[in-house]
Amino acid sequence: MNETVDMSNGDTEKEIVIVIRKMHKWYGQFHVLKDINLNVERGEKIVICGPSGSGKSTLIRCINRLEEHQEGEIIVDGTELTNDLKNVELVRREVGMVFQHFNLFPHLTVLDNCTLAPIWVRKLPREEAESTAMEYLERVKIPDQANKYPGQLSGGQQQRVAIARSLCMKPRVMLFDEPTSALDPEMIKEVLDVMVELATEGMTMLCVTHEMGFAKTVADRVIFMDEGEIIEQNKPQEFFDNPTHERTQLFLSQILNH
């Protein structure tokens, strides 16, 4: 099933990278994601927020099929996610992911962490992969740590390596799954700075985060989820100033006023 979908609709100006249509997911009997519909334009930055257990992480994990959906369709960059491993690999190549707990490979140096996928998935020669890796390590401001092991770095540094590692695959979309929630407070800023820079360069980003400051400055759209549904989505200004749904109002009052 190598079904590709024509995205170039005549009347829309922007190219759409991710299409999610009527998507449902269950964990056993438990209905985690209910009727999700979402289109993501190229270059768009989306922040997804919501109470814990609302399905926001599960949603972005469905986009690179770390989780399988049971109904509806997810089309990433023209490739539909199905049981066909070829399609899954194709999508994963184009979609980078940054995890809450970094998930760096502890037995490899920082540089090897960054070159592994380019060498084995993109089949780049080692020298080319290494020079790309150094370029990105410089962008996240830790080129001097290239030959250390992840265990020797601070949490903030590890997360920046994880971002560089994803970027080395030159992905078209980046997914961030609570990238700052496992970090000490003084390290959150260095990671957010890197993400802001990435956003200004035009990367398509989907970000699950509770950093509302980041959402306000960077996001084109904020999505609020609760109990597996998208409750509300809007431009950040509107979203924060005039939330329409009462569950959104409650959530915002809880995280903003304390």
Binding site: N64, L66, E89, L90, R92, R93, V95, G96, M97, F99, N103, L104, F105, L116, A117, W120, V121, R165, S166, M169
Partner: peptide
């Protein structure tokens, strides 16, 4: 998951 998400076989 990290290995999978990078598209490694």
């Amino acid at each position: 998951e990290a290995a999978d998400s990078m598209g490694l076989k």
